[in-house]
Amino acid sequence: MNRWVSWLAGAALVAAAGGVVAVTPSTDTRNGPFLVHGTVSDTVASRELVVTVDSASFADRVTVSDDDWQAEGNWLVVELSAAARQTEVEASMRLATLVVDGREFIASERPSTSLIGTELRVGIDTHGMLAFQLPTDLEPSDAELRLAGPHSTPRLDDVIVVHLDLESAARERTIDILEPTIGESS
């Protein structure tokens, strides 16, 4: 009988170890970002940023008029306002991604007037645009815009997530990516 008790105790320990492994979060979960959700027109605040997404529009071509730069394709242009929350030291938006149907797209840095990397002020909105080049065959109905501060790979930090309803997004032939402006929008 002692032998059966040992076998049962061993089996119970193996089962308990399997349960601990099953409920232990992965490294990505333990070190991943904290998502702060919002919607278009809402002001959403993370530890480092305060953001309001104004609109999202599709374009067949994006341009930068002062730079003579242009690119054809399936572009999603997001207009938004951003400000630093607590400090202006290294205050900028470095991470801007669009998650569509499980696929992630990074905001293009090709337009010289993109809001990416623009210095932000505490309490004063900087209005600007982000442009995402999407595959031509992609026909999304909705997406998540993810924005974070000066760290391009936030770990254990906030990431702002704004849901975008792309079915209602307007389509324009050309959108000029305007230079970011500080203060009141024009």
Rank of each mutant, 00 (worst) to 15 (best):
A82Q: 09
A82F: 03
A83S: 15
A84C: 12
A84V: 10
A84H: 10
A84P: 06
R85N: 13
R85A: 14
R85E: 14
R85C: 02
R85W: 04
R85I: 02
R85M: 03
R85G: 00
Q86H: 15
Q86G: 12
Q86F: 13
Q86D: 14
Q86K: 14
T87C: 06
T87M: 05
E88M: 10
V89I: 14
V89S: 13
V89R: 15
E90D: 15
E90G: 05
E90W: 12
A91F: 11
A91Q: 14
A91W: 12
A91L: 11
A91M: 07
S92G: 12
S92V: 10
S92Y: 13
S92K: 15
M93C: 14
M93W: 11
R94A: 14
R94P: 00
L95D: 07
A96L: 07
A96Q: 12
A96S: 15
T97H: 08
T97P: 01
L98Q: 12
L98R: 11
L98Y: 07
L98P: 01
V99F: 00
V99T: 14
V99A: 11
V99K: 12
V99P: 00
V100E: 03
V100N: 04
D101W: 04
D101V: 02
G102F: 01
G102Q: 02
G102P: 00
G102D: 02
R103N: 13
E104D: 06
E104L: 07
E104I: 11
E104Y: 03
F105L: 03
F105G: 05
I106L: 12
I106P: 00
A107M: 08
A107Q: 11
A107N: 09
A107K: 05
S108A: 15
S108I: 07
E109F: 10
E109N: 11
E109R: 13
R110D: 15
P111I: 12
P111W: 10
P111H: 09
P111C: 07
P111S: 04
S112K: 14
T113F: 14
T113N: 15
S114C: 06
S114N: 04
S114P: 03
L115D: 13
L115T: 09
L115E: 09
L115K: 09
L115H: 10
I116S: 08
I116C: 03
I116M: 09
I116F: 08
G117R: 01
G117I: 02
G117V: 04
T118H: 08
T118I: 07
T118L: 04
T118D: 08
T118G: 04
T118Q: 14
E119M: 05
E119F: 04
E119N: 08
E119K: 13
L120K: 02
L120D: 04
V122G: 00
V122T: 10
V122A: 00
G123E: 04
G123H: 06
G123R: 07
I124L: 03
D125C: 00
T126Q: 11
T126L: 08
H127R: 07
H127I: 07
H127A: 05
H127Q: 12
H127D: 06
G128M: 09
M129C: 01
M129W: 09
M129N: 08
M129I: 06
L130A: 08
L130W: 04
L130N: 09
A131K: 05
A131Y: 05
A131S: 10
A131L: 02
A131W: 09
F132M: 01
F132N: 03
F132C: 01
L134S: 01
